[in-house]
Write a protein that binds this DNA or RNA. Structure first.
Lengths: 239, 239
DNA sequence: TCATAAATATGTAATATTTACACATTAAAT
DNA sequence: ATTTAATGTGTAAATATTACATATTTATGA
């Protein structure tokens, strides 16, 4: 085993200057839930080549911010929201994905409560679309959206994300509707309740639904503290 | 609801030219398995500032390749391997993560069979390290490695990745050692077997281990075809 | 006011899965 | 041939999941 070592690099600034550089954006896949449907927040593309097509909310990443900060910034600029759920999903790097040249984009997934957070701005027809109705979008945004949707489907089975889509206080029926809509399945009401109660992170608020056509259901809150105490830790090999 | 639309952008090339650009690298977290330990392939950093520290295998992304292609390229250049497992894990974007200026990096996780693939090159002391022995590395590579390790721990419980770390034909004891080492747990031999047989994607080769100190175990192969037929499809909410 | 409708709320038996545990079998080493 | 140290398999108990039925509550409208 021989090893020919080269001299160590001292001038790291020159080294980095020698790297090719690329344009980088973040795109936010902002999900909401309304009328028992999973929604995604979109605007009309402002590129002539994609005239009329829908686009995710994005922007290029600035010099001094992390990508997460950039994603939060986009979210804030478009919705006025801070303190919302945000998670990195994937980076998309096909060389031809942007008509203006090479632009990579990092997809961030965000979940928010449509009811609680009204859109401050309505530029470019910013509004909510049914996730399942979309079949064409600007750039590779359909692929990004679908990748994010699959990510969400998997993720809500394993982590308590879904609550970000609901008001602070919600009924179990609302929670079940959420799961059924996102996973595209029908679930047994009784077993669904049993499952969530057994996970033991729901707090009974003592309050009830209002303005509902029939018997109001109890309202619950998600307790992150109880979740942290009780969350499953064990190994479960299964695929 | 008012909407003031701006004129559509026609010159996309100028648009992209106006974006700030960043240096972007890929870093490969290449895992192997030997002596019942999870290993990661590292080299000595070639930066003076990180003299003596261990570094992941990385390179900047070239103009015309996708990041995945860049990661495969790094892998090939360092190990001579093609046709190996590779998955994107995360992008790291802290502004100060590189001493030479802003450099983002995308982590790719790769799994390969150490025995079957000898390292072609041994520059910069390229070799395998115990994952659990590392407590300091160049750049933010320790964080990247640990994020990738956690990713792997979760992933091998849900997907048949682990086989990439083993020879084509392996005994169930080897497979169990792999899971125990990666997940850092002890598993019951009988239940482990039952579980893997019930998933029904292992093919009995009829062959047996050789050069083993005691009674040789049967050798099995992983069948991707059988896996695709039998893999779980159902919904399982649990967190 | 009372009957009806439509939802909430809860319990239980059957089934499937996971866990804990013990003994027989095989081949290498001496 | 005997010992040793593995492999290989079975089974009962506990747990979790599934399928399914009935009682309760409130809004509504006759």
């Amino acid at each position: 085993m021989s090893s020919v070592n080269q001299p160590l690099i001292i001038d790291t600034v020159s080294l980095v200057a020698s790297y090719p550089k690329v344009a980088l954006t973040v795109d936010c896949v902002i999900f909401g839930f309304e009328d028992n449907k999973l929604k995604v927040l979109l605007i009309r593309s402002d590129l002539a080549i994609y005239k009329g097509k829908w686009s995710l909310l994005g922007d290029f990443a600035r010099e001094s911010e992390t990508l997460e900060e950039a994603a939060y910034r986009v979210l804030y600029e478009r919705t006025g929201m801070t303190d919302v759920f945000l998670d990195q999903v994937h980076i998309f790097s096909a060389p031809d994905r942007h008509p203006g040249g090479r632009v990579l984009t990092v997809a961030y997934c965000s979940l928010l409560d449509i009811r609680h957070h009204e859109l401050k701005i309505t530029e470019n027809e910013l509004h909510w679309h049914n996730v399942t109705d979309l079949d064409t979008m600007a750039f590779d945004h359909l692929e990004i959206m679908q990748t994010s949707y699959k990510w969400l489907q998997k993720r809500i089975q394993e982590h308590p994300l879904g609550f970000n889509l609901l008001p602070e206080k919600f009924s179990l029926r609302e929670l079940q509707n959420l799961y059924e809509a996102i996973l595209n399945v029908e679930l047994d009401r009784r077993n669904f309740r049993k499952k969530f109660f057994s996970m033991d992170f729901l707090i009974d608020t003592g309050e009830f639904e209002e303005d509902v056509k029939h018997r109001p259901g109890k309202l619950y809150q998600f307790s992150f503290e109880k979740y942290e105490l009780n969350k499953r830790k064990w190994v479960g090999i299964d695929f």
